[in-house]
C-alpha cells in the first residue's frame, strides 16, 4: 500500500496572544484555544491532494503528546486522513525524541513519503523533519512550496533565502512544508461526523522502543524586550527632517 505519513503537533492557536506565567516557569496554556500547527495542516492538505490524484492510497496522521491531543487528530481525520496514530505520553519530548518516534512509525507503516510542517509555531525549533530524515538515512526537502512526484522520486521546490531552489530526491523521503504550498481545506460538518468512526490507535513510547532523554532544560521564560513607542510626524517633510536629524538620510 502506498502510504503517506503526516506528523502533526497540537499547539496554542496562532490567533492567541500568549501570556507568560508570572513565575517565569512557562507559557499559560490552561483555558487557551489549541489547534493543529498551521504548517502541519498544510502538510496534511498536500498529502490529501496527492492521494486524491491517485498517487497515494492511504494518509496516516500521527502525533506525540498527552491525551488532550486527540481532538486535533480528529480534526485531521475530518479533513480526510484515513487513520490516526496517537503516541501517548505526558512527558514533553524534545525534537530528537519526536524524530525517534516518527522513525519508529516509518518502520511500522513503511510510508513512501513523510510530510511535516517546517516548524511548530510554539517552540519555533524547526528540527523534527530534518532529524527524522537523518535517523531514517533518507533524503530531506525542507521549506517546500511545490512537490511533484514521479516513479520513485520527488522534485521539490524549496523557499530559500536566495529565492526558489529545486532539488530531486529519491523516495522514501521527508518533506517539510512552507506556507505557500497550498491552502488547507475547511472541515465540513458531515466530515466531522464521519471522522468519529475512523480508526484512531493509541501507542506508547515503550511499544515503539523509544526512551526519551532530556538533554535540555528551560529554567526561564521571559517576555521579549519592548521597543519604546516613538513619535508621530504630520507629513512627508517632517519625516525627512526627522530622518536627517538622526543622520539616516
Amino acid at each position: 500500500m502506498k502510504r503517506i505519513l503526516v506528523g502533526i503537533k497540537r499547539v496554542v492557536d496562532y490567533n492567541v496572544r500568549i501570556r507568560i506565567k508570572p513565575d517565569g516557569s512557562g507559557v499559560v496554556t490552561e483555558g487557551v484555544k489549541m489547534s493543529v500547527n498551521p504548517f502541519d495542516e498544510i502538510a496534511l492538505e498536500e498529502a490529501l491532494r496527492i492521494k486524491e490524484r491517485g498517487a497515494a492510497e492511504e494518509v496516516i496522521v500521527a502525533t506525540v503528546g498527552p491525551a488532550d491531543c486527540q481532538p486535533q487528530l480528529r480534526t485531521c481525520l475530518a479533513m480526510g486522513a484515513d487513520r490516526a496514530l496517537h503516541v501517548q505520553t505526558d512527558t514533553p519530548l524534545e525534537p530528537l525524541a519526536t524524530a525517534r518516534v516518527l522513525r519508529a512509525l516509518t518502520e511500522r507503516e513503511q510510508p513512501f513519503l513523510v510530510l511535516l510542517g517546517k516548524q511548530a509555531i510554539d517552540d519555533d525549533n524547526g528540527q523534527t523533519g530534518q532529524m527524522l530524515a537523518a535517523l531514517w538515512e533518507r533524503p530531506q526537502a525542507t521549506f517546500a512550496s511545490k512537490v511533484e512526484l514521479s516513479e520513485g522520486k520527488a522534485r521539490v521546490t524549496r523557499e530559500i533565502d536566495a529565492g526558489l531552489e529545486t532539488i530531486e530526491v529519491d523516495l522514501p523521503a521527508v518533506v517539510t512544508v512552507d506556507l505557500r504550498l497550498n491552502e488547507p481545506r475547511y472541515v465540513k460538518l458531515p466530515d466531522i461526523m464521519k471522522a468519529k468512526k475512523k480508526p484512531l490507535e493509541t501507542l506508547t513510547l515503550e511499544a515503539l522502543g523509544v526512551t526519551p532523554r532530556a538533554q535540555l532544560k528551560t529554567p526561564r521564560y521571559a517576555p521579549p524586550a519592548q521597543r519604546h513607542k516613538g513619535v508621530r510626524v504630520k507629513d512627508a517633510a517632517e519625516l525627512v527632517a526627522a530622518l536627517k536629524q538622526k543622520g539616516l538620510l
Binding site: 525534537p95 530528537l96 519555533d124 528540527q127 537523518a134 530531506q140 525542507t142 521549506f143 530559500i160
Partner: peptide, 23 residues
Amino acid sequence: SSTFGKDLMPRIAALLETVQVSD
C-alpha cells in the same frame, strides 16, 4: 539561522544524536 543553517544543522544534530538549540 538562515535557510541554509535551518535545513542543515538539525540533520547534523541527529547524526550526532544530540540536542539542537535553534535561533
